[in-house]
């Protein structure tokens, strides 16, 4: 039987990794649910963002300040990607294929620029940790949680309460009908695709602060984040965060009580259970 301290430690680390899942899933879920675009390259983009943060951070820029460069660049990239998808009428399934190709290209580019060696951002943030009871909580993880919660809540509120959000949801259901009432559906789609890519940039920052980087890391979270997106509901802004924390905590507890290798079983069991019990939610 694990000690109470271990239990608390697992819970905390589950919440923190869950926040990262949620942050990675947020942009993916919005683009998928509202634009019908399954952007597999979201993960490659996040890791590219992490490498850019690493590069700029190593050059002396404060990691948080790198967002000022990464976010606009990624926004433009995301908008351009959607413009191409719209221009060539790429279906949801084909978007999966195209963005898989893009993933491979980004991975090769990362390997070419930064090599396959491990890279680690040395920042003063990594040394700061807070003591809560018997736990030590590193600042980077706390920052990930704070960003995930703030961004999910902000986007949830924007989708639910603003004209922009209502117009987006309406165009997701019936774009030409939304247009008939004055919604510039094409412009909104570009905007959302840009936001979604920028969210990958934010996730990249969090990855750079907490993890050692290697190109293959792109694929480390694909499975679990897809499970998170589906559990959370496509197009939902709060869903990925909640599902991410649920999966993160159950993974961490599984690791504590059994062996680390059992952890992936949890997320996929949850996903299969959902598919069996509530297929209409997907």
């Amino acid at each position: 039987m694990p000690s109470l301290a271990l239990l608390a430690q697992s819970l905390a680390s589950g919440i923190f990794i869950g926040a990262l899942y949620g942050l990675l899933g947020l942009g993916l879920s919005l683009a998928w649910g509202l634009l019908g675009q399954i952007n597999l390259a979201h993960f490659a983009l996040a890791l590219l963002g992490a490498y850019l943060t690493y590069q700029l951070g190593t050059a002396g820029l404060d990691p948080l300040a790198t967002l000022a460069i990464v976010l606009p660049a990624f926004f433009v990239f995301g908008a351009a990607l959607h413009w191409l998808f719209a221009r060539f009428a790429v279906s949801a399934f084909n978007s999966l294929l195209v963005t898989f190709g893009l993933t491979v290209i980004i991975e090769a580019a990362i390997q070419w620029i930064w090599s396959a060696d491990f890279r680690r951002l040395e920042s003063h943030y990594a040394d700061i940790r807070y003591r809560v009871g018997t736990l030590y909580i590193p600042l980077p993880e706390l920052l990930t949680l704070a960003l995930a919660v703030a961004l999910s809540l902000a986007l949830w509120a924007a989708l639910r309460y603003t004209d922009f959000g209502k117009a987006l949801r309406a165009s997701a259901e019936d774009a030409s009908m939304a247009q008939a009432f004055g919604v510039n559906a094409k412009a909104l789609a570009l905007l959302l695709s840009g936001i979604s890519a920028a969210l990958a940039g934010v996730a990249g920052l969090c990855i750079a602060l907490s993890y050692t980087l290697a190109p293959s890391q792109i694929y480390a979270w694909v499975g679990v984040v897809f499970a998170v997106v589906m559990l959370g509901g496509l197009g939902s802004a709060l869903g990925p965060l909640i599902a991410g924390i649920v999966i993160g905590v159950s993974e961490a507890l599984t690791m504590a009580f059994t062996a680390p290798s059992w952890a992936p079983l949890v997320s996929f069991s949850l996903l299969i259970a959902l598919l069996l019990l509530r297929p209409e939610k997907i």
């Binding site: 209502k166 309406a170 009432f181 004055g182």
Partner: peptide, 9 residues
């Protein structure tokens, strides 16, 4: 929301 969207312009 449907009605509000009607008044989007």
């Amino acid at each position: 929301e449907n009605l509000e969207l009607g008044a989007y312009r």
